[in-house]
């Protein structure tokens, strides 16, 4: 096999670089600010993320989709995001036991370590997103799942011009680089 250790730059995003892997503040490498464009992209840490699937999932958890603004984000309160017609992503919720809940007919899996979460803030942030996907504040979507720059992400609004992006950890490094480059191109 070809040794590609020099082809791919060392990751800038990695819990493992911080020893005990506590969920602290993002490092300086995990924040990208382009003041000229008034855009800030940063990695954020959430307390807990859980997938819940079942026919009653959407009704049981009042979940948010596009383009509604998710309440409670700033206060780190619990909220939920619609992923598909039978699945929600619970954020900052209470601890739930993984597995099949036969009483509620729900499948539960904690995915706190599956996702990296980025926050994109600023008046030009929607323009950045439009480089990667077809998106408009006037076109609603029942699901927060998107293909952004070709990556599967969970994307929702947390304030008027503030967006939250969840990306599978294995793809986070390249997705981050792609986002940063898109912001640079916009500049």
């Amino acid at each position: 096999m070809r040794d590609d250790r020099n082809k791919w730059p060392s990751p800038v995003l990695n819990d493992a670089t911080r020893g005990d892997a506590t969920r602290g503040e993002p490092t300086s490498a995990e924040t990208e600010t382009v003041s000229g464009l008034n855009i800030t992209l940063s990695r954020i840490k959430l307390q807990r993320q859980v997938w819940v699937s079942g026919t009653s999932a959407l009704q049981r958890f009042k979940c948010h989709s596009w383009p509604s603004i998710t309440p409670g984000f700033k206060q780190a309160q619990a909220y939920s995001v619609c992923l598909r017609r039978d699945r929600v992503l619970l954020v900052n919720g209470t601890l739930m036991k993984d597995g099949w809940d036969a009483q509620l007919d729900l499948a539960i899996t904690e995915v706190s370590d599956s996702y990296y979460v980025f926050k994109l803030v600023g008046e030009n942030s929607l323009a950045v997103l439009r480089r990667g996907t077809e998106i408009s504040l006037t076109t609603p979507s029942a699901s927060a799942m998107r293909k952004l720059f070709g990556y599967d992400v969970v994307l929702y609004r947390t304030a008027e011009i503030e967006f939250c992006l969840h990306i599978d950890r294995a793809n986070a490094e390249s997705f981050w680089a792609h986002l940063v480059e898109s912001i640079d191109n916009l500049a």
Binding site: W8, S10, P11, N14, D15, A16, T17, R169, A170, N171, A172, E173, S174, A177
Partner: peptide, 10 residues
């Protein structure tokens, strides 16, 4: 781009 391992820096 390839997927990256959490232990890649290690």
């Amino acid at each position: 781009p390839p997927k990256r391992l959490v232990l890649e820096p290690t």
